[in-house]
Simulated scan of single mutants.
Amino acid sequence: MDVREIIARRAAQELEDGQVANLGFGIPTQAVNYLPESVTLIMHTENGAFGFGARPSYNTCNSDITNAGSEPVTLLNGGACMSLATSLGAMRNGYIDVTILGALEVDQEGNIANWAVKRNGMWWPGIGGAMDLTYGTKKIIATLQHTDKKGNSKIKKHCELPLTGKGCVKTIITEKAVFDIDAGQLILREVYPGLSVQDIQNITEAEFIVSSTLKEMTL
């Protein structure tokens, strides 16, 4: 199981029956493929659809029905497509219960940076709909790899990249751990099987406390 699948599988477990859930670009789009069978909800995608399901087979996919990453999805019975303007309006106005977003960095205060890197003196590619989601969604779940390619922590004391949303993240999921954020406090809730709290401390810049109910991640 690769890193992206580990994160997507664990993120899917955060979704609850009856929710309206948005899946952002990148790793989050895969969560719908691992949704527990007991959970029935309405999936939303920023590019303009409510009521989509898991990835279809190659022979049944429709290139006009896609998620935020332009990957084919299944439009379920009762599902609806709409303009981007209508979709963004729903995102801003509180119709989404939970959003799973990919991130470049998150920090112990619940800030998230997921839209920009600096190249040739310029920030790009652009903030997109994530800004609307962090403003209008009740719960934000951030998904990202725990460290960058050089082994530097992406779970920061303070984000260094331009922010997408401030103080909005409630849960952080990496391939190594699951954290909650409560009242500005980062709380380690789960660790990947075989890892210790010390292992997580060694790769995490942010300061955190350990939950009294700490357990291993299940996938």
Rank of each mutant, 00 (worst) to 15 (best):
V3R: 15
R4G: 07
E5Y: 08
R9I: 11
L15A: 13
A21L: 11
L23Y: 07
F25W: 10
I27A: 11
A31K: 09
V32L: 11
N33I: 00
L35C: 10
L41Q: 10
I42G: 05
N47L: 12
A49E: 09
F50R: 09
G53S: 11
N59R: 15
N59V: 10
T66D: 02
T66H: 06
G79T: 11
G79W: 13
C81W: 02
S87W: 09
N93R: 14
N93G: 14
D97L: 14
E105G: 02
D107E: 03
Q108Y: 01
G110Y: 05
I112K: 04
A116L: 09
K118A: 13
K118D: 12
N120S: 09
G128L: 01
D132I: 01
D132H: 12
T134R: 05
T134F: 07
Y135Q: 10
I141S: 02
A142G: 04
Q145E: 14
H146I: 00
T147H: 03
D148M: 09
D148N: 15
K154R: 14
K156L: 03
K156P: 00
L163I: 08
G165R: 11
I172C: 05
I173W: 03
E175V: 03
V178S: 06
D182K: 11
A183L: 01
Q185H: 02
Q185S: 03
I187A: 14
L195A: 02
L195S: 05
L195W: 01
D199F: 05
Q201G: 02
A206F: 03
A206G: 04
E207G: 04
V210N: 05
E216V: 03
T218A: 12
